[in-house]
Simulated assay, not measured.
Amino acid sequence: MDLNKELKQLESVERGGPDKVFTMYLNTDPSDPEQQGGEWKIHFKNGIRNFEHYLEESDDKEELRNFQHVKQNVENFIRGNEQQFRKGVIVFATADEEVWFAIRVQMRLETEFFWQETPQLEQLKKLKEEYPKTGIVLVQQNEVRVIESYLNELDMEKHFELDVNVDDWREKTAMGPGNPTTQKDDLNARFEANKHRWYKSVAPKLDKLAKDEGWEKIVVIGEPGQAQALQDQMNKQPDEVINKNMLDHASERIIEEVFA
Rank of each mutant, 00 (worst) to 15 (best):
K217N: 03
E192F: 10
K158M: 12
E52D: 06
N4W: 05
G214D: 04
E98L: 14
L7S: 08
T173D: 11
E257T: 15
R86A: 14
M107Y: 13
K217M: 10
E122K: 15
P177V: 08
D32A: 12
K20V: 01
E98W: 06
D185H: 02
P30A: 07
D168K: 15
N76S: 14
L127P: 13
E216D: 05
K244G: 02
F51R: 03
Q116P: 09
V99I: 00
N245I: 00
F85E: 14
E153R: 08
K244V: 04
K211L: 03
R79P: 10
P30I: 01
G176H: 12
K8L: 05
R104D: 12
D2Q: 10
D96G: 08
R145P: 00
D167Q: 09
V219S: 00
K125C: 07
E130W: 08
T118A: 07
Q120W: 13
A210K: 04
T94R: 02
L10S: 06
K71C: 01
Q140I: 00
R108L: 11
R79E: 15
Q68V: 00
K217S: 02
K217L: 04
R170M: 15
N76Y: 05
T181M: 08
E63W: 00
F191Y: 11
K158W: 15
N66K: 08
N165C: 12
F114V: 13
H53P: 11
E11R: 15
A260N: 09
D60S: 02
P224K: 05
V105S: 12
E52K: 06
P238F: 09
I103W: 07
T94Q: 04
W169D: 09
E257G: 04
T182M: 04
M246T: 01
K128S: 14
L162V: 08
E153C: 03
V144E: 01
Q35Y: 03
A210M: 04
E161C: 11
Q36F: 14
K20T: 03
K45A: 12
G178H: 05
P30D: 11
R253S: 15
A250C: 03
M234G: 01
L138D: 00
F259M: 14
L64S: 05
Q237T: 12
A250H: 11
P132H: 06
